[in-house]
Design a protein around this nucleic acid. Structure first.
Lengths: 159, 159
DNA sequence: GCCAGATAGTTTGAACATCAAACTATTTAT
DNA sequence: ATAAATAGTTTGATGTTCAAACTATCTGGC
């Protein structure tokens, strides 16, 4: 461990503490903000969960119910309930797959696609703010940090 | 917009995309991992929500019910329910405040303090992995990015 | 000191999310 | 042709959440 930096050990700890709290708060804040944005838009009848399901269904993927349920670590029954609501509100469509009539392929209606694009634009603004004033090297560093974190979680998950 | 970098526009977009997805996944993965860790420990009867309430109550803060509820953007009634469970399971204590007998000051039992420390250690490992191989300058950059994000969310929140 | 709000926390009743298990329709393998 | 497997839905139970009513206590003006 090299110790030539002028930053004190105490300051390092403080930074780590800040980063810790910020990491934990990030998602809550993003979720809260997403929900708030959507409440003030034409998509008043959507909550954060439903928004993310619409996002997961995506524009061109024709995903199945089981695929999306797995993605959200949610039982198939629970997803069915959400899909019923989203279908009733006019955001998604179910298409019975003609090659295997057990499976349902999911798609977005035009209203659903509009919501998708609004949400997508929001996330682009979010990431832009996150990376404000940074050059390519900086971006690589951020990316590396996130990759470290993912690897840590993946490794630990495997035990 | 300066354009002297050798990194192509496409690669930049790809990085931003990665960062976007990683940011969104981070919290879910952390939560899932926390829950999994706790399930495999002596604190089997705790879920992620309760863990975070124990963390918020903290070691020495004597917070009130209302303070903690506000922190979690949760109604007082909901928090009361969680506190009942946590008290029953032996993690927290309620202390009626003698100066103002309406207020309850919350504290952790020794079991609660133990859980707090286990969780705290987990988060330190997490942040260490996140910052693996980084020097002070790198850390400052990460901190700056997270501050950017917080500011963006705060500003936007105010509308 | 005494009453009218204000405040802290609890209780209650309803709505919703969630899961596991049973169920229906369909496909695959033997 | 039938048994087993699979995709999705339904069902019943449980848990989380909120808002509103409620209880106990405190504070400010008289």
């Amino acid at each position: 461990m090299i110790d030539e930096k002028k930053t004190s050990e105490a300051a390092r700890k403080q930074d780590q503490n800040y980063i810790n709290n910020a990491l934990v708060d990030v998602y809550d804040n993003i979720m809260r903000f997403e929900e708030q944005q959507i409440r003030g838009s034409r998509f008043r009848d959507i909550n954060a969960r439903e928004l993310h399901i619409v996002h997961a269904i995506g524009l061109h993927d024709h995903k199945t119910t089981s695929q999306v349920a797995r993605e959200f670590r949610m039982s198939k029954g629970t997803l069915t309930a959400h899909l019923n609501n989203l279908e009733r509100k006019g955001y998604i469509e179910r298409h019975r797959n003609p090659d295997d009539r057990r499976v349902i392929n999911l798609g977005l209606t035009s209203k659903g696609r509009l919501l998708y694009r609004v949400h997508d634009a929001f996330h682009r603004r979010l990431v832009n703010s996150f990376l404000a004033g940074m050059d390519d090297d900086d971006r690589q560093l951020i990316k590396q940090a996130l990759m470290n974190l993912e690897e840590f979680l993946d490794e630990a998950q495997k035990k």
